[in-house]
Design a protein around this nucleic acid. Sequence first.
DNA 1: CAGAATCCGGAAGGATACTG
DNA 2: CAGTATCCTTCCGGATTCTG
Lengths: 133, 133
Amino acid sequence: MTTRTAAHRRVDGRDSYQARFTACPVNRLIDRIGDKWVAVLLNELAEGPRRYGDLTRTIAGASQKMLTETLRHLERDGLISRTVTPAVPVRVDYALTDLGRSLLPVIEVMKQWAEENIDQIDSAREAYDTRDR
Amino acid sequence: MTTRTAAHRRVDGRDSYQARFTACPVNRLIDRIGDKWVAVLLNELAEGPRRYGDLTRTIAGASQKMLTETLRHLERDGLISRTVTPAVPVRVDYALTDLGRSLLPVIEVMKQWAEENIDQIDSAREAYDTRDR
DNA sequence: CAGAATCCGGAAGGATACTG
DNA sequence: CAGTATCCTTCCGGATTCTG
């Protein structure tokens, strides 16, 4: 059987597509900063270094697990640093690295666009939801 | 019992936090473009209008469901337009709206940063994964 | 204090078949 | 051609408990 349906082509294309997808820098960046708590976290650390406890209080909406997980991911990617000060009790500080700081202007651009256009999105959304069906 | 543990405070803070979170334009933007296939889709439509069938072939990695879903979301937010040409068979074209086009430069900035810094992220990640434990 | 480990429900994402 | 509709699986995020 040499018949190739659309489904077949899709399956065949998936692997190579996945490769291209994850290789694409933009997608990788979005994968990273798309995590739910990354934006808030970076925003908070932009103000200066923070201790773990500070973050759990400031970002009260996130569970401990999510916070720790997000911090680990960002640390792994070199966007933030984690400094342990041996003492009793232990003290851990998180701060933006140079790489992390270089990302802030990018976020600022996103913020600009978002603030300027949020109204249009809202009204588009409302129009879509209330249109005749 | 008036004792307030950290967990209590977290729970209390969650609602108001959620409100602030979803009200923040940046988070809303990220919510939107963070969807797995949005970037590829916008990238494809940046080249010009495309028919539904074209997209299923070009973006072979996405399931039909995900493609349709993503298109609906973007249409709802007014970032793309959907034009039905009644004929036999039916013809449907998708294209960027002005709003959608205005988002391209923002993505371009993200792309720039991503391409410039992807190596640093990769090496940071490798260092993190291979460090002594 | 700063987390690690575990369990769990629900949503996200995908495969497949059917329709105007 | 351009989608729905349906079913199924994975995995994200949260609650809770334990540890150095």
